[in-house]
Design a protein around this nucleic acid. Structure first.
Lengths: 233, 233
DNA sequence: CAGTGGTCTAGACCACGTG
DNA sequence: ACGTGGTCTAGACCACTGT
């Protein structure tokens, strides 16, 4: 949208994308180095670097030191999904957010959980079952497990007035997380909790969080029927 | 992990994240400008700029010219999901990818489709129903609609030997796309197509694609039972 | 209008990883 | 070992937008 500037990194990106689309550079092949390209396009290397760096982050090319930059053979499109805090998400729709703790127990972690969190030890975990409501309507059922070895403060927190996610965000920094979207048919418990027919297709989000290889918490969230996530590319 | 350098943008990011976490700068409040910060941290403004730019793209802060940079009150965590081409996805698991066209018709678009694509006119659309298999197992059912006004080449393409997505990627550039994840209970048709029990919870992905405000194609993909999308933050 | 972020430049040093 | 990307710097001009 501008030819006024010197040679914007955006222009470079578009030009390179066009070349890739026109297979001037074949998929899988090596493209010229930063210095060569910046000379060809008449821009500073920093500018070219930013263009290429963003293209790499967009999944269009792959860069390796010494090896150079090559066109990805399968241009993996990617979508950025915002995972809002549930309170914001609900309040944004105009409803009141309400939270309720259903059950709070300390347990030894079941095998599937140990496998999921990649832990050897049998440290105790805090198991929380909660509901989130939008106005009077059930919005989400949450099955939360917190590793007490890495988050000992959780042992003395009742979680009756604050939901686990908000508490964790405030109290515990994390470094890595894994998110899994899947679906499930509502069983008896879920159908009652979420007030949906038995067998209804539900959207689920699992989230595992670590701090430097130490697992902090695992959560599985079951959304009300009809929930959807949307994003733009 | 390095104090060797001068002051890396990564260090700056971490330092700022820590300040936000420690509420040195309260949510919603304004933080100092780039110049002030770069002086305080002893780095060039370009370095500070990159750190702040990435933090903004991570959804931690919000930046506006003249207005300054402020901490987001609701730090929206976001996940980047890779949306692979189905052939790659299947072949990556070691199965053969197979594609089958079920039905190909030219129609006037139904109302819901016109609404979805935000189009006034009643231009004809090409409607394709397809199946994708992993080995002998049904993997995905695809319901695809292509706007013939914007993609006239599709009219003379049989789509018997190439799937719509691969053809479109090769032939038609696009500028914007919207992706929607949701779930559905398998109806009679889906249960037969995907070989799952009636009512099974299925993962669905809708995708609408534009080129400069002109709608190109709408697709709704129904995945086999048990499908999940996963990502790391 | 004036302040803040957005971007470009030209040059430099460094780290990684292939050959 | 050495080439390629990764990053930092110091300085400059520009574009947007709140006042």
């Amino acid at each position: 949208m501008s030819a006024t500037q010197k040679t914007s990194y955006g222009d470079v990106k578009n030009a390179i994308l066009k070349r890739i689309h026109d297979t001037v550079w074949a998929p899988g092949s090596l493209m010229p180095g930063e210095v060569a390209l910046s000379e060809e396009f008449g821009c500073a290397r920093a500018t070219m670097n930013r263009a290429l760096r963003e293209l790499a982050s967009d999944g269009v090319i792959e860069r390796k030191r010494k090896a150079g930059t090559r066109i990805k053979s399968s241009p993996t499109r990617q979508a950025k999904f915002v995972i809002p805090r549930i309170r914001e998400e609900i309040e944004a729709t105009g409803f009141d957010y309400r939270y309720a703790l259903i059950e709070r127990t300390e347990e030894t972690p079941p095998d599937w959980l140990r496998a999921r969190m990649g832990r050897k030890g049998g440290d105790d975990v805090l198991h929380l079952r909660c509901m989130h409501y939008a106005g009077s309507r059930a919005f989400q059922y949450e099955d939360r497990w917190i590793n007490l070895a890495s988050v000992p403060k959780a042992r003395v927190q009742a979680f009756e007035d604050i939901n686990p996610n908000e508490w964790l965000i405030r109290e515990v920094p994390f470094s890595d997380a894994e998110v899994i979207f899947s679906t499930v048919n509502a069983d008896q418990m879920l159908s009652e909790m979420l007030n949906v027919p038995l067998g209804a297709a539900l959207f689920t989000l699992e989230r595992i969080t670590w701090f430097k290889a130490m697992p902090l918490t695992y959560a599985k969230l079951y959304f009300h029927a009809g929930y959807q996530m949307t994003t733009r590319l």
